[in-house]
Amino acid sequence: MNQGLPPAAAPVDLNGPGHYLHWGVIQLSVANLVVIGVMVLIFVLALVLRFPKGGDRK
């Protein structure tokens, strides 16, 4: 299989050595931590932010 082409150049290159965090038994990549953190943040915002109201009917 020809795998000659390098990955297309991206503005943010995530191909370098990975960054990892350790707390006791827990090991987590920074990338996964960011994803999980963003998910929790979005969840909290979805609960807290006011939803625009449509018109009442009947």
Binding site: F43, A46, L47, L49, K53, D56, R57
Partner: peptide, 12 residues
Amino acid sequence: TQPKYVASWIYV
């Protein structure tokens, strides 16, 4: 229409 209580971003 949706029930009146469907008023949160969590529904999207």
